[in-house]
Design a protein around this nucleic acid. Structure first.
Lengths: 246, 246
DNA sequence: TAAATAGTGTCTATGAGACATTATGTA
DNA sequence: TACATAATGTCTCATAGACACTATTTA
């Protein structure tokens, strides 16, 4: 077995020339989700140019690639974070961001072969209003997820959104992503409403509370100061423990 | 809103010239899994060339891309099926094949920027011996999954295999993928051993049988003719109903 | 008939679902 | 004090886990 990084391999690499095969363009597209006014919403951009001029599209852009062997450009998740920052002003450390699926059907972009590594992001509602429509993101809007079928979406972006919604609905049951769709402090009823909004059905208050209390006992959550302004009994406010589990 | 495919857009497309940005090469890599001799195994290929000469690598290859607007090459899943057929002789209709995750870290291939859309495949053990080491797959071998940490794997292929193992362990619990790791007819103890092998822990025979019987009642499975040659009481043989649920 | 494995039954703990009831803060 | 909603409690049912026991086929 030849040792990795040996002289032999170094020689090979320095004389290596990539063959002149056709390459696809590779993009990252982002399904940025939030809950605003008790509705699940997707950040979409109205296209100003062809193709699909006037249709809604996901924010995204091409992955930066360099031709060198040492310098090869940015990682995929770096590209996703960068696009998120560029198009929303939100830094990735404040937002849940995860790779979703890669869409590469031939012909999905009429201009040329484009393979899109789709990601999805969850923006807490207290950050959502901060999204500044800057750069490419002029004409960005939080569009109702439930109203998407009426809209014209560019490329295969409808499939991508659908996949993202499937993913979060599935993950909501067994993971902690609900906490990324709620302000940093939250009440049990607020969290319960996230489930209701995403899954489209009400959870039983008592049963939901029971699950929640198990998490409390496990130390994932803790009480937080402050209270909500209500017209009746205000609910207890909670937050995450500093070093929480994902 | 401009109508999709209007004259305006046609004119745009015919005059469209892709900008001369650097593009990555895009590959599909395959984690082909089977169970042989009661062990989970991965199909690996010993690399004959630099880089990573002599190390084990996943089968895979570049996605075929065309430069045209109408003709853009093959779909990602088509590329995965094609690679599977080329490197194993197995046609995709006999094998469970699914996209896994996309690996695109800069520098993961020392030659140039390569983004790999990883897939995983489950081969039923009765098909596994048919894998013919043809084409690129000369020097292909069914390597023990549990012994992988001792081996030198090329590129980031260890991460890819790890991701595939995580995925099937997770899916084993809530999906029917176990049936793709067992011959077309099978007994309850055989199916139970798949769980034991993949998850690394024995399931209780009685409890497993209970779950299995629920599937029987749901009509997903049915009794099949034939019996196993054993030294004691042979188990009942089952198979899928023709139009089974995934 | 003995050995080995298939197959059945049972007890308990846990969690989900449905729903009734009590507690508490606000107007 | 009335109202609204938070918070608690209870009953039932489905399922997982642990484990004892019976049945059947082969050598």
């Amino acid at each position: 077995m030849t040792k990795r990084g040996g002289d032999d391999e170094k020689a090979f690499l320095s004389s290596y020339r990539p063959k002149d095969y056709a390459r696809p363009a590779v993009a990252v597209d982002l399904v940025v989700l939030t809950i605003l006014d008790a509705k699940l919403r997707v950040l979409l951009i109205k296209r100003q140019d062809h193709p699909f001029k006037g249709a809604w599209a996901l924010p995204g852009g091409f992955v930066r690639v360099a031709e060198g062997q040492k310098e090869q450009g940015e990682d995929l998740d770096a590209a996703a974070s960068r696009e998120l920052a560029e198009e929303t002003g939100l830094t990735a450390d404040r937002v849940f961001l995860e790779q979703l699926y890669t869409f590469g059907r031939a012909g999905r972009d009429p201009r040329m072969r484009v393979i899109s590594v789709a990601h999805y992001a969850l923006v807490r509602p207290d950050l959502a209003p901060l999204v500044r429509a800057g750069g490419d993101a002029a004409h960005a809007e939080w569009v109702l997820a439930e109203g998407l079928h009426k809209l014209e979406l560019a490329f295969d972006h409808r499939d991508i959104v659908e996949k993202a919604l499937e993913r979060i609905r599935g993950k909501l049951e067994y993971s902690n992503i609900a906490f990324d769709l709620v302000p940093t402090t939250f009440t049990i009823p607020e969290l319960r409403s996230v489930h209701a909004i995403v899954l489209g059905k009400e959870m039983d208050p008592g049963n939901f509370r029971r699950r929640f209390n198990r998490m409390l006992e496990d130390g994932v959550l803790e009480k937080a100061p402050g209270k909500r302004i209500t017209t009746s009994k205000p609910a207890t406010v909670y937050r995450f423990r500093p070093g929480r589990a994902a």
